[in-house]
Design a binder for these strands. Structure first.
Lengths: 147, 147
DNA sequence: CTTGACCTTCCAATAGTGGGAAGCTTTACC
DNA sequence: GGTAAAGCTTCCCACTATTGGAAGGTCAAG
């Protein structure tokens, strides 16, 4: 199997397969005499694993962890479960953030006429000195009071 | 006001202020004789607008649109509302995707013992030829049936 | 043998932000 | 006035994950 066939069979683009090889997520494929990459069914299975993990939102780094666990026949299922649940927590946090944004925007849009008149509470609010910002980031040394 | 003060007053890092200037999102700031950027209160207000929009998940490009609308005193509020609601749709779509991932992962984790035993349905599932994938992307010409 | 799909490597770009180096300016303090 | 430190300047690099393209070699089919 060459890279194009492995790509079609796994759902991972040839570009990405080469990239994953380059960064060491997967081992370098064998080559034909002319330099073409060759994939075995088991390597294609690995690529499918990767695509599935990617579709579930795992980062390349996390995929590396999962692959190592997958290939370690003696690992404890608790290790895998922990990685999965940590990822769920991250996803849920992101969902919370997005829901906050959507809620705010829907609220603002709900107060906007949405007609030909120019006044718009959405823009008014965006321009407001509101403190919806992220928790005050640790401030640096302190500014020299010059103005 | 120099860039550090404008940054503290707006919540946008100095790095990003320079970046936004570079890509043309904001106009180039005036300079002192020695080359320091100088910001007026109205420019700081613009930066706050930007930070607020960014916190709501707008891309740089969308922020450009919103800024133009904000500065166009004659625009119709419908234009603004449309941009906002389009963004809400995008956010909601992303939430759906993330919820699908979290649901799948929670389901898988729920079937994993999570103890010292090595067997784990999470990995088993990831390795499975499942078609949870994204809708089949338009396939190219077709592979030469060689294997 | 030509054609065209396929493979190879290498380089660039995306979005948004952070980090840092080298060097000048400003301010605080003694 | 001199010095130290904090700011500023530009420039370049890194990150994630992915795509795109160019230049050139290879393979199968006609």
């Amino acid at each position: 199997m060459n890279i194009g066939e492995a790509s079609a069979a796994s759902g991972v683009s040839a570009k990405m397969i080469r990239y994953y090889e380059q960064i060491g997520l997967i081992r370098a494929a064998a080559r034909t005499e002319s330099g073409y990459r060759v994939y075995s069914p088991s390597e294609v299975e690995t690529l499918r694993f990767i695509r599935r993990a990617r579709d579930l939102g795992f980062s390349v780094e996390e995929m590396g962890t999962l692959l190592a666990l997958w290939q370690d026949k003696g690992r404890e299922s608790a290790d895998v479960k922990r990685v999965a649940l940590q990822h769920v927590v991250k996803i849920e946090k992101r969902i919370q953030e997005l829901e906050g944004m959507a809620r705010t925007l829907r609220h603002l849009a709900g107060h906007c006429h949405g007609d030909e008149r120019p006044d718009c509470p959405i823009l008014d609010d965006l321009a407001t000195i509101s403190e919806t910002a992220k928790a005050a980031p640790a401030r640096k040394p302190a500014l020299r009071g010059r103005h």
